[in-house]
Design a binder for these strands. Structure first.
Lengths: 189, 189
DNA sequence: GTTTGTCAACCTACTAGAAGGTAGTCAAAT
DNA sequence: ATTTGACTACCTTCTAGTAGGTTGACAAAC
């Protein structure tokens, strides 16, 4: 994974989060990368190859990120607040969607490999959120009324939906409003 | 608004909910409508014209629908349950997204008119949800802990996010799980 | 009552440009 | 000498959109 490929993954990831999978072209990122369109095909023969590579790297980074959050926070509440802030940053930077939300909207345009990677990442985040909720319930830093799994799924849906609303309104305030209730459930964060 | 135009709006709306705004072409709906591509340009000169017409009709229908829900239900809880069921039906029918969720993902591809229509519709649903919550709080059929406006925004985000998750998982169960917490807040529904 | 004009709604045929992708070349690094 | 990473030049298919012709219904003019 050399510098050019890393650059292409960076540009591809940003493009997918901004405009979705069929909202960008090899010509777009070729221009941004300062190389020719055909050269991208050398590194990533098809667009689906690039998309899958972006998803796999994203999955790895996310896993690291989630582990780091749980290491660097003392309570479940702090971990959840950090996670919310992570999703919020996307909505700030010009209405970026998290990759999963962006690709769910473009589900028709991606192949089986990308789709299963997408499922895997969503499951991964739900699992991590579930762990956070269980910790938060134990240390009394989060109000968890129901089944942790269902709560975790609900929270992920709310976060992705909040990004959607913020983009539609072109205003991060919409994200904040949609996640306000979530934040009131965190004690001692 | 004659039969052909209505048909085109139907097909356009379905296509936008399935594949987003730049996920369908005039050729697609021409094939489905059984007329030529050029004939669509006769009725809707540009794709943005069609998109805007779809949004406007959607907005009207939604308004009627929301009014009908509030008329035909006795409690706020019943109204909310009906609304959740309305969003659920999309997730059932092959992972359809509500038009707002679909177009938020394609926000880059739509013009200013469509974008402001999109905002208006989201606001409309939030407003309606807020009314429902206030009624539900009064008649004790919904647990409303916080500000109704924030709660309403949060619920809309959850519903749109739940549709995203259901599509990614290719399974309505994901919608149900993401909205399970929501349903537990409804009493006597 | 036939002709004439108008118009809606469709058609065929086309354009320019963008899409994803391929073939084959070339220079520099290993 | 081979591999790497880029290039030019091209292909096919699809895109939104346009130009202009055909059909049939209806209404006014003769």
């Amino acid at each position: 994974m050399n510098a050019t490929q890393t650059l292409l993954l960076d540009l591809g990831e940003a493009a997918m989060m901004q405009r979705g999978f069929d909202g960008f072209s090899y010509a777009d990122i070729a221009r941004d990368a300062g190389i020719r369109k055909a050269s991208i095909h050398y590194h990533f023969p098809t667009k689906q190859d690039l998309g899958l590579a972006v998803l796999n790297r994203y999955s790895h980074n996310l896993l690291d990120r989630l582990a780091e959050i749980r290491q660097s926070t003392r309570t479940g509440g702090q971990a959840l607040a950090t996670l919310i802030e992570m999703y919020r940053r996307g909505a700030c930077n010009g209405g970026l969607l998290c990759l999963c939300a962006a690709l769910s909207g473009d589900a028709h345009a991606i192949d089986e490999n990308m789709r299963s990677a997408l499922k895997r990442i969503n499951d991964l985040v739900v699992q991590s959120l579930e762990d956070i909720l269980i910790i938060g319930r134990k240390d009394r830093s989060i109000s968890v009324g129901g089944e942790p799994k269902a709560e975790a799924t609900s929270i992920l849906a709310t976060l992705q939906g909040a990004q959607l609303l913020a983009r539609a309104a072109d205003d991060v305030g919409a994200f904040d409003e949609a996640t306000a209730m979530l934040r009131t459930r965190i004690f001692r964060a």
